[in-house]
Design a binder for these strands. Structure first.
Lengths: 181, 181
DNA sequence: TGTCTCATGTAAGGGGTTACATGATTCC
DNA sequence: GGAATCATGTAACCCCTTACATGAGACA
């Protein structure tokens, strides 16, 4: 899954600059790219070379010149083809599970502390994902279908954190009920 | 989070060769490394250089010579320090969510098909994670604490897939109830 | 005065991936 | 005869990350 298709997808909603794309991708929780300059500007150069986007240079007073990118009909076709192509498997990295796997090295207090710290970490992530007022309202605003899928994307993230919090509580109880250490 | 600590952790359970470590890491669902040769053998060379492991060369008839790695007391100290160090945030990459974000490009049938295919994909992943008889029984076998944490690691993965399947069902219902496309 | 935002781009380095290399034994 | 397992290692490549570079205006 290349960032190029995510960029095409965002441009299918609205024409915008590399800088705008960068902010959206960086702030998004479900797009798995950091959105650093190198990625964005290299991707846009490549998409332009392939004729999937065009750009219009916009001179501004009191701000740097920017390039507004617009998706072409070839770009829309490539986007649709990609959306329907096989979906890569999810990748889930939870460093906590690796720490936990070797909890045999810890005493009771140290393990409880590790679990407590992880719980607070996940609570913070859940709060941030809920409080986050996206500057991407235009992305979820147009049709009823689009509103639905974007709300479900948010719900997917929220449920992931909620599941994790429930699991942590069960883990803590199970650990507390162990007699011998 | 470096693979080096995962290797130290595995060696804290049992001394073994790079080849053994490779198989365990490749087969494990929660250790986020592919476990290719380059990673494993480079990590072992580095751990050896740092004095965190020692190795013993073992000549065999009818099999290649192998090196059995054993964790040192410095290695155990480094491992424990790492387990108690701050846990990195989880990273969750779900390419399906990116496809879904641009579902506005699809008609009803195409979207339903996309959802159905993802559901089957997750069902298969859930089945594989359940049916998987680990050759790492020795890892979960020693103390009650270790048995508990390893069963919770498995449960975490299982619950992740179950949550996803529930979410897919809700998504399908919500999409079906949309009148206008 | 220093930091933030806007705006685009480059350079260096680190980590990961696949593929190559060897060679005996076992299984189909 | 061909593939898989055991076993260790190297080489080339790609992607991603951080940091550098420029420069004006706004805000504290």
């Amino acid at each position: 899954m290349s960032i190029n298709y995510a960029i095409l997808g965002l441009l299918s909603y609205k024409s915008m600059s590399g800088y705008d794309l960068k902010k959206i991708i960086q702030d998004s929780e479900f797009m798995p790219w950091s959105g650093n300059n190198n990625q964005i500007y290299k991707a846009l150069t490549e998409l332009h070379r392939q004729g999937l986007v065009t750009n219009e240079v916009l001179f501004q007073e009191s701000s740097p010149t920017k390039k507004i990118y617009t998706i072409t009909k070839e770009g829309l076709a490539a986007l649709k083809e990609w959306i329907l192509s096989p979906v890569e498997n999810s990748e889930i990295k939870k460093p906590f599970l690796v720490h936990l796997a070797f909890a045999g090295q810890l005493d009771r207090n140290e393990l409880n502390d590790l679990i407590d710290r992880y719980e607070r970490q996940v609570e913070i992530q859940l709060l941030m994902s809920q409080n986050y007022k996206q500057n991407t309202d235009f992305l979820s605003g147009s049709t009823e279908l689009e509103k639905t899928v974007w709300s479900f994307i948010k719900a997917n993230i929220r449920r992931t954190y909620e599941m994790e919090l429930n699991w942590i509580k069960d883990l803590r109880n199970a650990v507390a009920n162990i007699q011998k250490y």
